[in-house]
Design a protein around this nucleic acid. Structure first.
Length: 465
RNA sequence: GGCCCCGUGGCAGAGUGGUUAUGCAGAGGACUGCAAAUCCUUGUACAUCGGUUCGAUUCCGGUCGGGGCCUCCA
C-alpha cells in the first residue's frame, strides 16, 4: 500500500518514496527541556509516533530509523535554571526524564536515537566552519552568522523571500549582520553563561544549527522525512535547510517535510498569561494516558485541535466502548486471532492517506460494533478475528494495547476481594428474588464508584470515571 | 502589508462532483426483575453570494467570519 503524505515543501499530498527502503530515515524536532511538556508538545510526539508505526508496518520495524532530539542548550533553559537556582544539567536531565515518562504514558515509543544538543557541539562547530569555508557564513563580533543572500533559493519551504522577511521583521537588526535576514549559527557566551571553546572564542550554538548537525550525524546529509510543528516552518526549518544544503551541497535536506497543526485549550490559544497551559503531567493525574492520546489523534494532524476536558471525557468514553468489546469477548473465553489478511486493513488504509487518524478511529469503532454484535448473537467463529482486528489495527494507532481488566478495574486495589464478596452476596440475593437487597448492594457499590453490569455470562464490575 | 489555514447536523470530526462517515449527547425500541452494558431505529449538515456543470457541501471567483506564521514558541 502506498503511503501518501502532505509535503509542506510542495504544499501537496505525495506518494512517499524512501531513498532507501531498507533504512527509512525520519527526524522530528523534539522538546526544549526546561519545563513540563504541555499538550501542544505532545501532539507532534503522538502524531509522528503514528507515522513511525505506519512506516515500520510498511517497511519492516528494523528498516526505519527515528531520530528525535532533545534541545538542552537554550536561553530559556538558562533563565529557568537561574530562577530555580539549579544547575543547567540538573534541570535538563530532570526535565528529559519527565518528558520521556510522560510520552511513554501516552503511548509514544522512544525514538531510536534521542540526541542531545550538548552532545553535538563539536559537529555544530564543524558545520559552521564548513559554511564559512563555502562562503555561506561569516564570523563577526564573536558571532558566526549564516549569510542568507548567499543562498539563491532561500525560503522555499516557508515561501517567503528575503525582502518580505525584512519588511515584516519585528526585531532590530543587530549591527554585526551583513544582511538583515542573516541568522546566528554561533554566539558568544558571557562568563556566567554556559559555553564551549570554538575558533571564535567561548560561546554557544544558535538554535537551528543543532538540528542540522544532529540530523546529519544520525541520518546523513539527505534523508526522507523531517517533521515538527507548523510554527517551526519559519524560521527554524527554513534555516535548517539553508545550513544543511549549503554545507553539503545537496538540492534537498529532507525529501518530505511534515507539520502538525496547533493545539488550543478549551477553545483558547495556550498562553502563560491566560494561565491555561495543560501539561501532560497534570492531565495524567486525572485521565488515562490513552485518553490523552486518543484526543490528540481525534483530529487530522494538520488541522487545529482543541484540547478540552470535555474532549478528554469523550475520548475516555470512546475507549470504554472499544475496550468494553474486547473485555466482553475475553470474559466469554475468547482469544484473538492474530492471522489477519494484511490486504484488508481499513485502519492502515486510512493512515496511509496522509495519516487520517479520525477515519482510522472510526474503523476501530466499526469493528467494536461488529464484535459486540457477534457476542450478542454468540457467533463464536467470528469473534477471534474481530478481536485480532481491534488489537492489531489498534496498535497502528498506539491504542487498545492495555489489559482490559486493568482498563476497567484500575490497578488491583486491596478492595477487590471485598467488592467481589459483595457481588457474590448480591448474586445470592437475586437468586432468592430479594431484589431490594440486590439493589441496595448495587447502589452502595455505585456510591463507591463501582458499577455493576449483569451480563449473560455473569456480573462484571468496573470503576466509574 | 506578505505567506498560509479554516468555516460540515446540539457537540467533536472525516470525506465526497450525483448513494451511510464515525463518535459523544438527545429521542424511541429490543434485552433486563429493575438497571448498566450492548444492539436496532431516529437527525431534509455542509458560512454566504455568484460562476462552471445535467447535477456542487465537494471545482472556480467574490463576500463575511475565525485562526496561524513573518528571527529562536510544538
Amino acid at each position: 500500500m502506498d503511503l501518501k503524505i502532505t509535503n509542506t515543501l510542495l504544499r501537496e499530498k505525495q506518494v512517499f518514496t524512501p531513498i532507501d527502503p531498507s533504512n527509512v530515515r525520519v527526524y522530528v524536532c523534539g522538546p526544549t527541556v526546561y519545563d513540563y511538556a504541555h499538550v501542544g508538545n505532545a501532539r507532534p510526539a503522538v502524531v509522528f509516533d503514528v507515522l513511525i508505526r505506519v512506516l515500520r508496518d510498511l517497511y519492516g520495524a528494523e528498516h526505519v530509523t527515528h531520530v528525535a532530539n532533545i534541545t538542552d542548550i537554550d536561553d530559556k533553559i538558562m533563565t529557568r535554571a537561574k530562577e530555580r537556582g539549579v544547575a543547567i544539567e540538573a534541570l535538563t536531565h530532570e526535565t528529559t526524564e519527565i518528558y520521556n515518562a510522560d510520552m511513554a504514558a501516552i503511548g509514544v515509543n522512544r525514538p531510536d536515537v534521542q540526541p542531545r544538543a550538548t552532545g553535538h557541539v563539536g559537529q555544530m562547530i564543524a558545520l559552521a566552519e564548513r559554511l564559512i569555508e563555502r562562503g555561506h557564513a561569516y564570523a563577526a563580533d564573536g558571532h558566526v552568522l549564516f549569510n542568507v543572500p548567499s543562498m539563491t533559493d532561500y525560503g522555499q519551504l516557508s515561501r517567503r523571500d528575503r525582502d518580505e522577511m525584512i519588511a515584516g521583521a519585528r526585531v532590530d537588526v543587530a549591527p554585526y549582520k551583513r544582511d538583515p535576514a542573516d541568522f546566528v549559527l554561533w554566539k558568544p557566551s558571557a562568563d556566567d553563561q554556559p559555553g564551549w571553546d570554538s575558533p571564535w572564542g567561548r560561546g554557544r550554538p544558535g538554535w537551528h544549527i543543532e538540528c542540522s548537525a544532529m540530523a546529519a550525524e544520525h541520518l546523513g546529509e539527505v534523508f526522507d522525512i523531517h517533521g515538527g510543528g507548523l510554527d517551526l516552518i519559519f524560521p527554524h526549518h527554513e534555516n535548517e535547510i539553508a545550513q544543511t544544503r549549503c554545507a553539503f551541497g545537496h538540492a534537498t535536506m529532507a525529501n518530505y517535510w511534515m507539520h502538525n497543526g496547533f493545539v488550543t485549550v478549551e477553545g483558547e490559544k495556550m498562553s502563560k498569561s491566560l494561565g491555561n497551559f495543560y501539561t501532560v503531567h497534570d492531565m495524567l493525574q486525572e485521565w488515562p494516558g490513552e485518553a490523552v492520546r486518543l484526543l490528540l489523534l481525534s483530529a487530522h494532524y494538520r488541522q487545529p485541535l482543541d484540547f478540552s476536558k470535555a474532549g478528554l471525557k469523550e475520548a475516555k468514553t470512546q475507549l470504554d466502548k472499544l475496550y468494553g468489546a474486547l473485555h466482553r469477548a475475553a470474559n466469554d473465553g475468547h482469544y484473538p486471532d492474530w492471522n489477519l489478511d494484511r490486504n484488508d486493513n481499513p485502519v492502515l488504509a486510512a493512515l496511509c492517506d496522509d495519516l487520517n487518524t479520525p477515519l482510522a478511529i472510526g474503523a476501530l469503532h466499526q469493528v467494536a460494533r461488529e464484535l459486540n454484535i457477534a457476542l450478542d448473537h454468540h457467533r463464536s467463529r467470528q469473534i477471534p478475528e474481530l478481536m485480532g482486528k481491534l488489537l492489531v489495527w489498534g496498535e497502528l494507532l498506539g491504542l487498545l494495547q492495555g489489559d482490559t481488566d486493568a482498563w476497567f478495574k484500575g490497578e488491583a486495589g486491596d478492595d477487590v476481594e471485598e467488592i467481589e464478596a459483595l457481588i457474590a452476596a448480591r448474586i445470592e440475593a437475586r437468586k432468592d428474588k430479594n431484589f431490594a437487597e440486590a439493589d441496595r448492594i448495587r447502589d452502595d457499590l455505585k456510591a463507591r464508584g463501582i458499577e455493576l453490569e449483569d451480563g449473560a455470562g455473569g456480573t462484571t464490575w468496573k470503576r466509574a470515571g
